[in-house]
Write a protein that binds this DNA or RNA. Structure first.
Length: 459
RNA sequence: GCCAAGGUAGCUUAGAGGCGAAGCGGUGGACUGCAGAUCCAUUACACGUGAGUUCAAAUCUCACCCUUGGCUCCA
């Protein structure tokens, strides 16, 4: 039984799909105006793991993500660079997808661009106006917060608070908390609409897209903690007003922030790190392990030393796997009289592992079970009590872990490229040999290196 | 001000009333020609502070201290 922490109820609830064993999942995608950063990576790695686990548990998942490819930031940046907004958006969308691929995020079934769903957006706004949930002003079309009783139910804010802290009141709006569905603009990229030229507001693309592909009600909606308010509250208001059905989403899932040295990562603080910067220095798997070694809802503090720790921890698992494979390829007995005992131990560990994952995807606890298991089995292996058939089962268990956490444990060497350092060591040793006038061995080294197209030229 | 999340060994993190957890790191030992890997032991008064409830509190209650975040750009 999988339990999920639902932001809406602030409780863990049993996952019950709306439709048999199918899960419809939507996660808010990025606004593609710049390179993606490691905070994005944290969120999308988390939902990738979640999707992998749901699939492992026999659920059929349709994972949809939007791409916000039109908004103020894109337009501003593009005009600064003297290029078309669409050009900028496509460039960063491409980089985003490449980054995700490198990080092993590969379970999104469909990416939906906002600009390719303008008719659906307009149609949804028209229905909101018809329902008297929205109204038109000189500057655009706005959602009327007072028309939706549950407004703010996800973030648990009340409307009065929202109105007090409004920064720039727009006098055309009925309530300060009303948000734009359609912005009337004709000096920027625009689309024609019943309200003239303009472009969509921030929140409407998601509900237009999810209504099209997932319907008015679906299972899980995810995103970063920072989207709860106002974005997800706005989505609920829009969709539940349009359809009259509720809840729009059964389970709201939010990932915690990634901080750097205890502070929020931001460009102004100078602690901003893009995925590309990160991957200059670290293996994607190491970052992935780092992310999954903290619960997805907890804040996670990024630092070089934390990544070093992750690298060593992950290395332990890779080494164990290497050892297992080596033994399976050895001439060990296929079975022995201890097998039953080990099958029981293995099953116990496996059950505990799944129990941890069932509990709101508790990857840190699941990892601690894996490490305990590895220690115990290392001990047994040292004492040479384990047969080949057991080792094969162990291998399958670790690989199952790998498939859920997103690590390819086979066919991937776990070491850094130290070629340059290695050559330095070899040439140093050869220099030592030459000093000793061991011409035979130093010539042999030179010729062996030449076979590898590495040419040494002595002065 | 309002609303959240959090403070657990040197570090990174789980746990949520009852045998002191996992990894990383440090130290010692076993194994090894040496090293590594691995194992064992050890390092640790482990639970922000002060009260309370309870046979029993890191876990529940209250108060307080501290950190971080959100409060219409945000993953």
């Amino acid at each position: 039984m999988i339990k999920i922490y639902n932001t809406l109820t602030r409780k863990k609830e049993e996952l019950k799909p709306i439709n048999q064993n199918r899960i419809k999942l939507f996660v808010c995608g990025p606004t593609v105006y710049d390179e993606s950063h490691i905070g994005h990576a944290r969120t999308y790695i988390s939902f990738d793991m979640i999707t992998r686990y749901l699939k492992n548990q026999g659920l059929s998942v349709f994972y949809l993500q939007n791409i916000t490819d039109i908004d103020d930031k894109i337009i501003k940046r593009a005009s600064k660079l003297g290029i078309q907004p669409v050009e900028l958006a496509r460039k960063y969308e491409k980089e985003y997808l490449e980054d995700m691929h490198l990080l092993g995020v590969e379970n999104v079934n469909y990416y939906a661009r906002a600009t390719e769903h303008i008719p659906e957006i307009i149609n949804q706004i028209e229905r909101l106006i018809a329902n008297e949930n929205a109204y038109e002003t000189e500057t655009g079309v706005y959602f009327d917060e007072s028309s939706f009783q549950d407004f703010g139910k996800l973030s648990r804010r009340n409307v009065e608070d929202l109105n007090v802290h409004r920064i720039n009141p727009d006098n055309n709006k009925r309530n300060p908390g009303d948000f734009a569905l359609w912005k009337k603009r004709d000096d920027e990229p625009f689309w024609n609409s019943p309200w003239g030229k303009g472009r969509p507001g921030w929140h409407i693309e998601d509900t237009a897209i999810t209504e099209l592909y997932l319907g008015p009600r679906y299972d899980i909606h995810g995103g970063g903690l920072d989207l709860i308010f106002p974005h997800h509250d706005a989505e609920i208001a829009q969709m539940e007003s349009v359809s009259g059905e509720k809840p729009m989403v059964r389970y709201w899932m939010h990932t915690g922030f990634l901080n750097v040295k205890g502070e929020k990562m931001s460009k102004s603080l100078g602690n901003f790190l893009t995925i590309r910067d990160l991957l200059q220095d670290y293996d994607p798997d190491v970052f992935r392990f780092f992310v999954l070694s903290t619960h997805y809802r907890s804040p996670i503090d990024f630092s070089k030393s934390a990544l070093e720790q992750s690298k060593n921890s992950l290395g332990r698992i890779y080494k164990f796997m290497g050892q297992i494979i080596e033994l399976i390829e050895s001439d060990l007995n296929e079975t022995n009289d201890q097998d039953e005992n080990y099958i029981n131990k293995l099953e116990l560990a496996r059950n505990n592992f799944f129990k941890a994952m069932d509990n709101d995807f508790n990857t840190p606890e699941a990892l601690s079970i894996i490490f305990n298991f590895i220690r115990d089995f290392n001990r047994e292996i040292n004492e040479e009590k384990v047969s080949k058939s057991i080792l094969k089962r162990v291998m399958l268990f670790i690989m199952e872990w790998g498939s859920i956490f997103g690590f390819k444990l086979i066919g991937k060497e776990y070491y850094e490229d130290k070629t340059k350092e290695l050559i330095d060591i070899i040439t140093d040793i050869r220099e030592e040999l030459r000093d000793r006038k061991d011409w035979e061995l130093s010539d042999l080294i030179r010729s062996k290196l030449k076979d590898l197209n590495i040419v040494l030229e002595d002065k």
